[in-house]
């Protein structure tokens, strides 16, 4: 019989963080939302085709010129999956996906895409796009092959980039400063060649950097594009993951990640 009292006793071991720290976070987010909403209203009134960018330094500034069509298409919410399903097929178009209570992104998806877990994973025929807030639990596997427990990489963008560059198993490019969707950060390319023997790895697959609760692994060969971004004081990681595809296939895939624009959540 389940002993629920033992579980209740766990409350004694939970240490609440300082309430004032939560209050400060709430006030900071409130200010950002207010500023972003005001700026967005101005942009809409001006009628210009300027993409809103929420910068990490509390400034709202226009991003680079928006990517080409179909980014000018109307933005839709992802359709809801059928009851009991976690995935839903989506038509080609531009979609808004919330990644926190205050943040969302918009992205162009090609025909034949599937959204999983409310858009955490967006699978096209060529790759799987994974976009998430990379909080304090986000990190890299101790060893992507043999010890796949995710260790936190540290709280900053730089901490994570350093951990990614040092990852064993993966061949990771040098990080390059980049702007994506109005947010600044770093871009890296990662690769596991087809010659890599993943058989000794846990279940024959190699673990990706992730939050522990959203981690996925895959077989070799692997090609990935990783963006580590600072979006309105949130660290956000965008992964474009492809298992078993060639460089040519990957390069010819639709420029889905490049169509991303970060916004405040509706």
């Amino acid at each position: 019989m389940a002993d629920w009292e033992q579980l209740r006793e766990m409350t004694q071991h939970v240490v609440p963080p300082d309430f004032e720290a939560l209050a400060r976070t709430a006030r900071r987010r409130q200010r950002r939302t207010a500023v972003a909403a005001g700026a967005l209203a101005c942009l809409v009134l001006a009628g210009g085709g300027v993409v809103l960018s929420i910068a990490a330094d509390d400034e709202i500034r226009p991003a680079q010129a928006p990517p080409p069509s179909p980014s000018d298409a109307p933005v839709s919410a992802l359709p809801h999956p059928d009851p009991g399903e976690s995935a839903v097929d989506v038509d080609a178009g531009r979609y808004r996906v919330a990644i926190s209570d205050s943040l969302a992104f918009e992205v162009d998806l090609p025909q034949g895409s599937t959204a999983h877990d409310d858009g955490l994973f967006l699978a096209t025929r060529s790759f799987v796009l994974k976009t998430e807030v990379a909080g304090r639990r986000y990190g890299v596997p101790r060893d992507p092959c043999t010890d796949q427990v995710i260790e936190p990489a540290g709280p900053t963008v730089d901490d994570l980039v350093r951990a990614l560059v040092s990852l064993p198993v993966y061949e990771v490019s040098r990080p390059r400063p980049v702007e994506l969707g109005g947010a600044e950060g770093f871009y890296l390319e990662a690769r596991i060649p087809s010659t890599y023997n993943a058989a000794p790895c846990e279940r024959g697959a190699v673990q990706l950097p992730s939050r522990p609760s959203t981690a996925v692994s895959g077989p070799a060969p692997y090609l990935g594009r990783w963006w580590v971004l600072d979006v309105a004081d949130h660290r956000v990681v965008v992964q474009q993951n492809c298992w078993g595809c060639t460089t040519d296939e990957f390069d010819s895939a639709p420029a889905t990640p490049e169509s991303i624009t970060f916004t405040s959540a509706p």
Partner: peptide, 20 residues
């Protein structure tokens, strides 16, 4: 929102890990 559903994992080569 944060849950990783098995369908994603099965479909995209990820693995089924129980909660740590």
């Amino acid at each position: 929102r944060g849950w990783r559903h098995l369908a994603v994992v099965r479909r995209h080569q990820g693995l089924d890990r129980g909660p740590e």
